[in-house]
């Protein structure tokens, strides 16, 4: 059976049930947040851009922020029938694309990763796996059938599964 492929755009999110593939292309310092219920096979992906809602408060699109993305994904998963205690998280992205931006400059990627881990901990969601940081862009693909997250980069042909 071929799964339907749905693109998750920058600042967007999607929740899907079996069989579907969710995909975000070209993630740099943004963060791809994946929540998944492995028993009911319900999964969601958000493509968040900045760490905290509190810092920007753009109420037009709360998915823009890492923390609110996690809350919204979590609620939508549960609404679709996921069991909260079973939901696991995976993270990908948060790169620092321009190496010269060293000490003293804001590392948005790093801040996004920290915000996600803090929020997951607060919500008692287990972080199952991650591929974060570094200086490479990523394309992130969640297969709702298996819960596998495939990560592709341009630098090598290698494909990583987390």
């Amino acid at each position: 059976m071929t799964s339907k492929e749905i693109f998750v755009e920058v600042g967007g999110h999607r929740v899907a049930t079996n069989p579907t593939v969710l995909k975000s292309v070209g993630i740099g310092s943004c963060l791809s947040i994946i929540l998944y219920d492995p028993v009911n096979r319900i999964g969601g992906m958000a493509h968040a851009m900045l760490p905290y809602y509190e810092e920007g408060r753009d109420s037009h699109n709360p998915i823009k922020y890492v923390d609110t993305s996690i809350y919204i994904l979590l609620d939508e998963l549960v609404n679709k029938g996921a069991i909260r205690e079973r939901i696991i998280a995976k993270l990908a992205g948060g790169a620092q694309m321009f190496a010269f931006l060293g000490a003293g400059t804001m590392n948005i990627g790093e801040r996004n990763i920290k915000a996600a881990k803090k929020t997951l901990k607060k919500e008692k969601i287990r972080l199952r796996s991650e591929d974060v940081g570094g200086d490479r862009g990523r394309t992130v693909i969640l297969d709702i059938v298996t819960g596998d997250v495939t990560i592709k980069t341009v630098s090598r042909d290698e494909v990583m599964i987390i």
């Binding site: 920058v10 292309v25 070209g26 993630i27 740099g28 310092s29 943004c30 851009m49 790169a95 620092q96 694309m97 321009f98 190496a99 931006l101 948005i108 990627g109 200086d135 490479r136 862009g137 990523r138 394309t139 980069t153 341009v154 630098s155």
Partner: peptide, 12 residues
């Protein structure tokens, strides 16, 4: 300099 996917390069 970044040599990568357009989406990733634009983000920062």
């Amino acid at each position: 300099l970044a040599v990568d996917m357009l989406g990733a390069v634009l983000q920062y």
